[in-house]
């Protein structure tokens, strides 16, 4: 098995980014615009400031943060992603993670429980049977990776909106965050979570999810890039505190909306 192309050759030390993240997240929009218009930041954009590369990274993250806001403004909650006939579903789907498929640790569906946290009224844990009993929705959508590759997949599961409504989640909160069995924290904005093409997927192509693709439950949303679709979900939290995510802590943009 070849190395996943999604994994960087050598993962950079993310601690520097985490150190500055609060600062970056609290920057004012006006301040960003003003800072973006100075000659100094223009010079940084040309990559001339080689003596302080961390200053370049801070500037890039500040613009990335601004891009996240622009993307949230561009997002149309009623705009549906193109869908495809079931005959176009790729079987099996493409595997991708930050490790090889041989390192997948299957989750036992019989003992698996979905924990809830944060701004949710009823935090009773859910079993797989509980989820299967909820209304299901099937979508055949394109999975697009930030790397550029894409494939058409067919997913069936509980619309995340339905799940959040049933559990009494605060739908005005900013974020829905996920914990997974493979230590791949992820989070999306509430608007994307409530989009009709965002589901807690239980099936692929009419069959229960196979182990490498997130059994028993994974997120599939048509309005985010591939890395915003955590697999093997173990916990969901609704929060107003920025939760971040696995690749986001290494520099990738958080919003990643399509």
């Amino acid at each position: 098995m070849t190395k996943s192309p999604f994994r960087p050759d050598d993962a950079p030390d993310a601690s520097v980014l985490d150190m500055h993240r609060t600062l970056i997240r609290t920057l004012e929009r006006r301040g960003l615009l003003r800072a973006g218009l100075t000659l100094g930041s223009l010079v940084m954009l040309t990559g001339c400031d080689v003596k302080r590369p961390e200053a370049v990274e801070e500037a890039l993250l500040a613009i990335s943060n601004l891009n996240d806001r622009v993307q949230a403004l561009l997002f149309d909650a009623n705009k549906l992603a193109p869908t495809y006939p079931a005959s176009m579903i790729l079987r099996p789907p493409k595997f991708n993670a930050y490790y090889d498929v041989t390192d997948v640790k299957p989750v036992n569906g019989a003992t698996w429980k979905l924990e809830l946290g944060g701004l949710i009224q009823n935090k009773r844990p859910w079993t797989l049977q509980d989820l299967q009993a909820l209304p299901q929705r099937s979508i055949v959508i394109k999975h697009i990776c930030v790397e550029g590759w894409s494939y058409i997949g067919g997913w069936t599961g509980v619309p995340l909106r339905t799940f959040l409504e049933r559990t009494g989640a605060d739908l005005r909160a900013k974020y829905v965050a996920f914990q997974t069995a493979d230590n791949y924290p992820s989070s999306i904005d509430m608007a994307a979570a409530l989009h009709p093409q965002t589901v807690l997927a239980l099936q692929y192509g009419g069959q229960p999810l196979a182990d490498p693709f997130g059994f028993p439950v994974r997120l599939r949303t048509a309005v985010k890039l591939g890395y915003k679709n955590p697999k093997w979900i173990t916990a969901i939290e609704v929060t107003n505190t920025y939760p971040g995510g696995f690749w986001e802590s290494k520099g990738f943009p958080w919003f990643a909306g399509m």
Partner: peptide, 19 residues
């Protein structure tokens, strides 16, 4: 290439696009 690895190339690209 500009950017230490893909994440930073993406950030450069999405910053440069505005200019």
């Amino acid at each position: 290439r500009l950017g230490e690895w893909a994440a930073w190339s993406v950030n450069w690209h999405f910053a440069g696009m505005w200019f």
